[in-house]
Amino acid sequence: MLFDIDGAAAYCYTGGKTFDPALPTVVFIHGAQNDHSVWALQSRYLAHHGYGVLAVDLPGHGRSKDEAKRSVEEMADWLLAVLDAAGVVQAALVGHSMGSLIALELSQRAPERVAKLALLGTAYPMKVSDALLNTSRANEQAAIDMVNIYSHSSMAQKPSCPGPGFSVMGGAQRLMQRMSALNPEQLFYTDFHACNAYANGEAAAQAVRCPTLFILGSKDMMTPAKATKLLTTAIPHGRVVQVDAGHSMMAEQPDAVLDALIAFLR
């Protein structure tokens, strides 16, 4: 599904169903160097079980056009414009990693538009090492390799994404490579710098009043559970669910993530 946002196409995957804004809406927001496809199982299931689904491609990612936004605040404003264009009055926001910061920021900017908030693989501050940022500028492929290793709990997950012979790590690497090919203007650096520079997370978290869910990977090296303490303290009513996975939990433990989301959205 395509919307026009400031003269540029914004793509949202609707889970194989025609989007109906009259249904309870769930908006999925991907992380750095990714697109909507990281939510393949979760978005499709919910779309076929009573929800209106919008799994966005952020600007400069996947099928969405325009340049990549350079800050979490700009991405939150863009996402609000997508909700307006889709005719969505209120939605549950589900964000992973960088997407969790976008969801958090939007919940402060327009709290009346956010019914529920699910933050996966989140942390604040979401600091990125100078070594990774510098590598992304000098050798983007090397940076992709580094993050791909850090984001997975093992080379071959058991159980893995439903599909015999499917390589979770290989699929993630190819997706990141595809994002670089679609947007050669140092997309990796732009995304990770935005995470590193975001400074409003604590204030945004303290303002959250809606039901909140944290889904954390017990083997996450990118955003380990201890890095989420500031957010879980600032949102004391938030429920925490831990899954046996690394940072790429939607692929490593898709059913566990989906089960947690289903229970939360009900």
Rank of each mutant, 00 (worst) to 15 (best):
G165I: 10
T122N: 07
Q186F: 07
S153D: 08
N148V: 14
N183T: 13
G171Q: 02
L132P: 12
S153L: 09
L133Y: 03
L119W: 04
M179I: 04
N139Q: 04
A142S: 03
K116A: 10
E140M: 06
D130G: 04
H193W: 00
M98E: 09
N200A: 15
Y198K: 06
T190K: 12
F192R: 07
S167T: 10
M176S: 09
F188W: 00
A197R: 15
Y150K: 13
A115T: 07
A110I: 06
P159V: 03
N139F: 04
T190H: 09
S153V: 02
T135Y: 04
R109I: 08
E185V: 12
A197P: 00
L182S: 11
S129N: 08
G99S: 03
M179F: 00
E112P: 00
M176W: 01
Q141Y: 00
C161W: 10
L101D: 10
G201I: 08
I144N: 07
N134V: 01
F166N: 09
Y198T: 09
V168G: 11
V114C: 05
A103N: 02
S153N: 04
K158E: 14
R174C: 00
R109A: 15
Q177I: 00
A197Y: 02
E185C: 08
L182C: 08
H193T: 02
Y189L: 05
L120S: 03
T122D: 03
